[in-house]
Nucleic acid binder design. Sequence first.
DNA 1: CGGAATATT
DNA 2: AAGGCAATATTCCGA
Length: 883
Amino acid sequence: MADKKKLLLLDGSSLAFRSFYGLLDLNNFRNQNGLHTNALFGFNRILTRLFEVENPTHMLVAFDAGKTTFRTELFDDYKGGRQKMPSELAEQWPYFSVLIDAMGSKTYELANYEADDIIGTYARQAEAEGFEVVIVTGDKDLVQLATDQTRVDITVKGVSDLKAYTPEIIREEMGIEPLQIIDMKGLMGDSSDNYPGVTNVGEKTALKLLKQYDSIENLYAHIDDLKKSKMKENLMNEKDLAFLSKELATIDINTPVSYDLEEFKVSERDLEKLTAFYREMNFNSFLQNLDQSEGDNSEHFEDIAYQTLEEITEEHFSEEMALYIEMLEDNYHYGKIIGISWGNETAIYTASLETVTASEAFKNWAKNEQMKKNVYDAKRTTVMLHYAGIQLNGVSFDTLLASYIVNTKDSGRDMAPIAQEYGYKELSLDETVYGKGAKQAIPEDKTIIYEHIARKVEAIQTMQPLLMAEFEKDDLTELYFEMELPLAIILAEMEMTGITVEPERLEKMKEEFSVRLTEMERAIHEQAGEVFNVNSPKQLSLILFEKMGLPVIKKTKTGYSTAVDVLEKLSATAPIAQMVLDYRQLAKLQSTYVEGLLKYIKPETGKIHTIYTQTLTQTGRLSSNEPNLQNIPIRMEEGRKIRQAFVPSHPGWKIYASDYSQIELRVLAHISGDKHMQEAFLEGQDIHTSTAMRVFGIEDESDVDGNVRRQAKAVNFGIVYGISDYGLSQNLGITRKKAKTFIERYFEKYPGIQKYMVDIVEEAKEKGYVETLFHRRRYLPDIHSSNFNLRSFAERTAINSPIQGSAADILKVAMIRMDQALKEQGLKTRMLLQVHDELIFECPEEEIPILEKLVPEMMQGAVELAVPLLVDSNYGDSWYEAT
DNA sequence: CGGAATATT
DNA sequence: AAGGCAATATTCCGA
């Protein structure tokens, strides 16, 4: 069967503007000539994506022709009041057509008409010829063109996401037919196109009227039926305006266009033109993608000299070298090393794992603290070699960790993009060399591996001095060498040590849960009156809201929400809601924690070895994965019991756990300098009680009941996150107005906090980044965005990151101090886990008295703040008992 | 492969 | 006029 013809119609002007404002980072998007390139970059991304996703046979990008159109003749002020195109966008304008042409598509503009009209006209023509049509624009007006054959995709936020409008979706969301959009616009007007509509009629009123009267014409035919009201008066007075607005909103589908549809057949993209364009614009990532999609991308690489060794001797080592170990698996506790490379400016060597493990010379070099090694991911390298029976010491630089410290955006497993960023362009993506997903494979020809990893060694060497220079420039040297790099080695040890988990305990829970889940599922089916998949939110929502007719509380992008807060509301009247909640809770425990953890117990050792990712979060926190041991249940007793399976690895040992009390609020008290909050901590008061008394004006501490304290606690949390009245109201289930007064009262009572929030946002705007107590940076490009959401998010981030990040820094310092102390004192105690504000150890019982002094000393003394740090500790026979 | 839901700090 | 709290990971479903 021949593929159906598919026409893609792009509103070039609209998308260009969207790209420009969606990526409003004018400093970073410039080419070597200083030309701004942000809009072109975004536009290219849309085009590439559309070609991939839609695979059109025909395509046209339509542009607005100029200031005057037939609409301005109808209405002088049409699009009046619009500010001029910013010069930064205007200078990019000529290049859009260059890009579109290179991509194999056509552009078109027509004097006196807007892009909308061209699109409307061709859409209707194409429909008549049996095409499938897709329109892409940032302008909602075009939704009026949707039909069964034509879909209209509107950009939602920025340009990356599109929302599809089909007639069904429009009916569902607005309750009208696509063509009625015109009537709606006629009544409500359009502020961006600057035509007025009827006074005081907005979308809501317009839709209400249209549902009753279908069209403006019919509405006015029945205008006498309307009850006397201000609205009726407005409608009568402004009848002309309504009809004029409707005319302005109507897309002309009979524009005198001059090309035949067949002219818009998509042609092959012109690689030469496209490459030249990307080069000119400095779009390196697109260039690289282009290379890959064209297959052999090593063609333009310089040859690299390296030597594959069968026999390794002392001569192959020098005082300072780069080292790289290749393994395809992400999880290095289970993966297989497929090649090893090391070298310096004069020579690069490669060897197989067998050759290396057979070599005493290599092992001695690896172990020797004095012999410096530059690596990419010190932790990964250390653990991989450990499993190969090789001890690695003397790691003096980690280029991955370094690039993350310079910019938290660099977090990649893959070296190529980071190397590229630092000017080393001779390296392919791992994906290109080894394939991805199911297609990934170890190359038959080992020289492919060796050449690739030899380049990695060269990349490490190239990057290292550049990263050092960045450290000096941004005052990051101490953070890196005193905190992050030593921590990487400590984390490696923690991961290798692992934590013992008793499978028997989990197996028992599994049996019990399985029986209960079956029964709960049966009961839910009974209530529903049919068998369905309770795990499917879609099927569940059909049962709840359509079959059983329960009230819809909240919607998601794709349908009805069945989230906790929704089900909780429903549970008052519908027992099935509570049953689903209970079922979900248990199902989560079963699949993620009981069965999930069992999968990760190493049979040989009975231990779980997580992987901490040190270079991922934007705040400086660690993350834990495969499995995540930072979110083991604790709030609900049932889930908390999971922790009973986490036990010491030797008989007679204990699990010892210490956590910081309210570290984030203490950090906030410190950096904000707020006297009242500092005082509360200095006097050892319960902070939430203290807040409750201040904010709610309670005189006597004994009058603070649980509920009031809970509310104060929620406000404190909200403050740390950069609060909004809406967020707080959702959280506490109170009105927005009430939430607002809470926050106002809070700021009144803690003026230092309010000042901090204003100042930090100001600082972020000035510098483009915020930083922690230890100078860890987070860049916030969106702080200047004209997009309200992006900007607001950046502002909240500016408030939260120094708090969350400084707390993370403090625990990192504590870990280093603790590790040092354990080693110096020759203790048997081992640090096992880190969970953001707590450390978990295993220890022989006799060391407990030592730890009770040592751990608080190391943790509380990690940093000197204006308020004391406080640590709580517990121990027992399992993690459960230690918390 | 993205979205929804839910687990933690 | 809009719009939605900070940082993560994992599982499941359904296109």
